[in-house]
Amino acid sequence: MTSAPLTGRTVLVTGATSGIGYETACQLAQRGATVLVHGRTADEAQAATDRLIATAGVEAGQLCAVSADFTRLDEVETLAHRVVGTHPHLDVLVNNAGMAAPERHTITADGNEIAFQVNFLAHYLLTSLLEPALTSAPGGRVVNVSSALHRTGNIQWSDPNRTKRYSRLAAYAQSQLALTVFAADPRVTAVSIHPGICDTALLPLYAHEGATPAEGAAHVVRLCDPATEIVNGAYYDRDQHVDPAPAATEIRSVQRLNKLASLLTGHTA
């Protein structure tokens, strides 16, 4: 079965220079979408777009390299303003950028635990600032690339930076739970997905072997397709719509998370 073309669709993929993000950008572009390829630096983003053009048969006009270091919220804000200025209509935002929490407790220059900021707060801020572009026409959606490990997480509301008790696995799980809870925010239609255990930089958190990044990306791309009907706040384990952790759908959790994220990012939705 041949996948339907996505010509005319514009998609921003964060963390698109490697792994699932790169393969997601590749598959979207091969189906005709215009893809904003995000990297941590301008050089990394440009290198990824050059590679897509050289090896994936993608036209240069379909790609736009954009950059922001998610450990710096001011760069996230600059990225959002640039995207809205150059692409006032955005069909899909794929919140894919992520990192494993480091062994040693690390705080960013913005004052946040690094995994919580990179995996969740930066995406919260980016999504909030891109809301005008995502809602400029019907059908805009957000796809949060989360993790099955969100089920083991809990959000430390009074100590989200985990200064009192730090564990890299707990910090990572907290960031993934927050990203999954965020999908239930009513402002922009959003879903979360665990793309499966894939052979990426995050593999050591899960197992010794996994599926290819391209296989994981295919599940993400399916949710970017307007032919795939979605319900706000839905959670997918690969191609199966399943229930997330109970905390991910609690209205109180959504409200508390929005309040916390607004405080930590300095952005009031």
Rank of each mutant, 00 (worst) to 15 (best):
C64K: 15
A65I: 12
D69C: 13
F70A: 07
R72W: 04
L73W: 09
D74Q: 14
V76G: 06
E77V: 14
L79E: 05
L79C: 13
A80M: 13
A80Y: 08
H81P: 10
V84F: 01
H89F: 06
D91Q: 07
L93Y: 02
V94M: 04
N95T: 08
N95L: 03
A97Q: 00
A97G: 03
M99K: 03
A101H: 03
A101M: 02
T108K: 02
D110K: 03
G111W: 03
V118K: 01
V118Y: 03
V118D: 00
N119H: 05
A122G: 02
A122C: 06
H123Y: 07
S128K: 06
L130P: 03
P132D: 09
P132T: 09
T135F: 06
S136V: 03
P138Q: 11
V143A: 02
L149M: 13
G153M: 03
W157A: 08
D159L: 12
D159F: 09
R165A: 15
R168I: 04
L169T: 15
A170D: 14
Y172K: 14
A173V: 08
Q174W: 07
L177D: 07
L177S: 12
T180N: 12
V181T: 10
A184P: 05
D185S: 11
P186H: 03
R187S: 11
H194Y: 12
H194T: 11
G196W: 11
C198A: 15
C198I: 09
C198L: 14
